Computed example of a mutant assay.
Amino acid sequence: MSRHLADLPRRRLMLAFDHRGLFNQLVRESGFTELQPHGAVVHCKRLLLQAALRVAEAPGPELQAPPHHFGVFIDEQYGAMHAWIARDHGLTLAMPVEQSDSAAFHLEFGSRFGEHLAHFMPDYAKVLVHYDSSSRLTEDELVALRTVSEWCQRSATTEFLFELLLSAPEPPAGHPPATAAAAEQQRLGHTVAAIEWLYRQGIEPTVWKVEGGFDRAGFAALADTARSGGRDHVSLIVLGGGRSLRDAAESIRAAAEVEGFIGFAVGRTIWSDPLRSRLSGLQDDEETVQQIADRYTRLVRAYLEGEATRVGQVALS
């Protein structure tokens, strides 16, 4: 039976700029002096929000989708005002609860993280976790993650989004590095194992934000794992990981062909070069916003192309 695109489950086509240390580094390296560093970061994030709204509110005939299918990842430190504006315009909003630029997972506001989430009422509370398959996570990290997971389960407004970044394992002593194909299979296997292990620890996200670069079969394996054990309500989105725009688009298109993948959350790939040009004085605000909007649109289009392929496959089955 055929299904119209409008009847598909929710999409999450998201521009991520909840980074903090990375923006400070960007401002510092550019030599930008029009504003103080804090103000410069706030200004950058204002441009990013403008770009997201430009795509969401005037997406063009080939990108027709309601505003809540588009969204942003925004932090409280530099983007509190932007978060309110995004909500007022109907964008999906995700906000981080982890301490910035920490290898270990710590809650930014400690036990008061829930008060901050309740103030903004984002659609997603996001955690970023660096996972090493050899050492996994400490008990303190697991306790903090379970706390967020349980808080979101009780919340009527905010779901739990888990961004999983894996540390690449070192090859055994005396063994040559793996080929690219073998390394991809190893990374896929480690990702599957990490999700399974986290489930056993009582961590229950609604959405997994996972690394890209896999083929369709690889993304299908991730979706099967994330939605195992009766978790049909769980979805996945793809992160950018600093890939080129072309590579990110290919990865997003492949993921979109798989049931369970509802979108992407990409940051640096979209905005790093345009913001560097703006901070270096090579272009103005309007040029920067339009470049970011164009790059964001390219990834939205890639997802919709992959989604259309999946819908066509369903219609033929």
Rank of each mutant, 00 (worst) to 15 (best):
V127Q: 07
L245E: 14
S272R: 15
G242D: 08
D284C: 06
Q283K: 02
L93K: 04
R253V: 04
G240M: 11
L137E: 07
I237W: 02
V55C: 01
A223Y: 07
R301S: 10
M81I: 13
P96R: 07
F70H: 04
V148Q: 12
A181T: 06
G267H: 06
T92R: 06
W197L: 04
R3D: 14
L35N: 11
G202M: 10
Y78P: 05
L304G: 02
T269I: 04
L236F: 02
L107Q: 14
L198Y: 03
V210I: 10
S30E: 15
V210S: 04
L222M: 06
P59R: 02
A144I: 07
V72E: 14
R112Y: 07
A16D: 13
M81A: 15
Y296G: 02
G241T: 14
V97H: 08
Q25V: 13
A193P: 08
P172Q: 13
R276E: 14
R246K: 13
G90D: 02
A56N: 02
G230A: 05
G230I: 11
D247A: 05
G218P: 11
A94N: 07
L282D: 09
A51S: 07
A180H: 08
F17W: 04
R3C: 02
T297D: 03
L93A: 12
P122G: 09
G241M: 11
F73P: 01
A255F: 11
A16R: 10
G189R: 14
E57H: 04
L316T: 15
P177F: 00
D215V: 03
R46Y: 05
A193G: 09
G263V: 08
V129S: 08
R187F: 11
G240E: 08
M81W: 13
L316V: 15
R20P: 03
E259R: 14
G212E: 12
Q186S: 01
F120R: 14
I195D: 07
L198C: 03
S2F: 09
A94C: 10
L5M: 14
A180D: 14
E98R: 07
D215R: 03
G39M: 05
I262S: 12
R54C: 05
T309Y: 06
F264K: 10
A265K: 02
L48C: 02
W197V: 05
D140H: 15
R54S: 10
H233I: 00
E259A: 08
